[in-house]
């Protein structure tokens, strides 16, 4: 594997690793808040993949510059999708946390094992 291919794919490998670290927290951890933390990491990994795809070599942020000779801009579309997804992400995350808080009030625990025993 050449250095070029390594550098060209490193972002995607980090995406895959982060995605699976988050997924591991979701499936292997019993604590409900820890699961949501894992879900945030999972989500951030997807953001990283989209933004990596939007990059163009030698490009700059897609804000047009007057008088630039042959300017190269990165792709604005994935950036727009992720920009809105971040804000929606925090809103849905707090919905999840709100449900966890109510579960804790009802059962006195947020550990999956104890919740299953209590039912």
């Amino acid at each position: 594997m050449t250095l070029d291919a390594f550098l060209g794919h490193f972002n995607y490998w980090v995406f895959a690793i982060l995605l699976m670290i988050g997924f591991y927290a979701v499936i292997a951890k019993g604590n409900l808040i820890k699961k949501l933390v894992g879900l945030s990491i999972f989500q951030s990994a997807v953001f990283l993949m989209y933004i990596s795809m939007s990059k163009v070599e030698g490009g700059t942020a897609p804000i047009l510059q007057a008088g630039a000779v042959d300017p190269i801009y990165s792709n604005p579309l994935p950036q727009v999708l992720i920009l809105t997804a971040i804000v929606v992400g925090v809103a849905t995350l707090s919905l999840g946390l709100a449900i966890v808080v109510r579960i804790n009030e009802r059962y006195g625990s947020i550990e999956e094992r104890e919740l299953l025993d209590a039912d």
Partner: peptide, 8 residues
């Protein structure tokens, strides 16, 4: 920011 996504 390094990947040119200033808004994000």
């Amino acid at each position: 920011f390094i990947l040119d996504a200033a808004d994000v």
